[in-house]
Amino acid sequence: MTLRVLRPGLLTTVQDLGRPGYQNQGVVVGGAVDRFALRVANLLVGNLEGAAALEITLHGPRLHVESDVYLAIGGADLSPALDGEPLPLWRPLLAPRGTVLDFGAPRRGCRAYLAIAGGGFDVPVVLGSRSAYLRAGIGRALAKGDVIAPLGTPPRTRLRTSAYLHPALLPAYSPHPLLRVLRGNQFETFTPESRERFFQTRYTVTPHSDRMGCRLMGGSSLELQHAEQMISEAVTSGTIQVPPAGGPILLLADRQTTGGYPKIGQVAAVDLPLAAQVPPGGTVRFQEISLEEALSLYVARERALLRLKLALASR
């Protein structure tokens, strides 16, 4: 027994890197919305990067620590505190038995990831993943009284809690980020004015946003050159769809596998963590990027994570 839930928070679920391989069954990959934060939090406590952690949304839980546990929190700053003492993000910490881990007001971002040493949280694997996928009835949100424990015993060697992540490695988290986007598959079907407007508008993230996607509002509507019914095709995380009425939708982890709305853009993978952390009321702007640039940024991010992995493993 490790953590007992005293208060579950707004929406706290177990997430890992999702369940690839079932999209032809209509089952999305899902998993952590901010994959960078989940991976780093796991690495900091000595787990594999894809171990199951808690995804904590805006208003976090209150957890009683039932036995000593090493943990790390990444992603949003939701005012984590241990027995009232504020906790830093992005570094491993020891939470001694009998303490209370509490979250307060959201200060920056909207999704925090709590990783624990010992291989991550032990919940049932469904279709190859421990990720909750509430829309499909897989897993559930944490509830008061739940007891959650790690899979195995944490390594006996003490974690060096002086380790921390160099801020330069972090994505440029902001409530008002500039997101780099590739042209979407139907970019050319929009009118020239609409294409231009898409890159000039500052869009507000509405409160109807969730793990499926950010619903955006702002500017006048984006028009197609010819109104035509599109045939449903694949979408993915970061796809920006434009339904006929209402604003664009930026798809996140629990998107659908296929969609029938024209895709105007695709957020570069390296900027997806930024999109994942924009709270309701925050804004986003889009800037065009080429596939080559997006790829080299992606590769650079993966290399940085690999270096972090190696550095943590060799200490």
Partner: peptide, 22 residues
């Protein structure tokens, strides 16, 4: 190659760009 999404008129193949280029 790690995933395929067949649809009405399209097939989308997901792959690791660090292994295979576009």
């Amino acid at each position: 190659l790690w995933e395929l999404i067949p649809a009405f008129t399209t097939l989308t193949a997901f792959y690791d760009p660090q292994v295979t280029s576009y």
